[in-house]
Amino acid sequence: MDLFKMFSKPDNSKDIAKERLKLVLIHDRANVSPQFLEMIKGEIINVISDYMEIDESGLEIKLTRTKRDSDNSTVPALVANIPIRKMKDSGKV
């Protein structure tokens, strides 16, 4: 029994290839420029900063795909991971 195998990630190299391909194709198909995500990132920071204090260095934003709940088909999705430090007063009820 190979111990390393038991505890390593279950991903086969072909699964990694498929995942990487799916991601790169979203960009290719959408014809997204490298500046595109940076622009969105900047705008999101602007909007959210009015309501909460966020950790800008920890902000992650990516274009990916996800399964749609209604018919289980794959659709592109914009996923943002925004760590919040604290809410601002203006954001409180």
Binding site: N12, S13, K14, D15, A17, K18, L21, K22, L25
Partner: peptide, 13 residues
């Protein structure tokens, strides 16, 4: 052995 994309993988993509 899972080291090459199969037919379904490529059709899917």
């Amino acid at each position: 052995r899972g080291d090459m994309m199969n037919i379904d993988d490529m059709i899917d993509i």
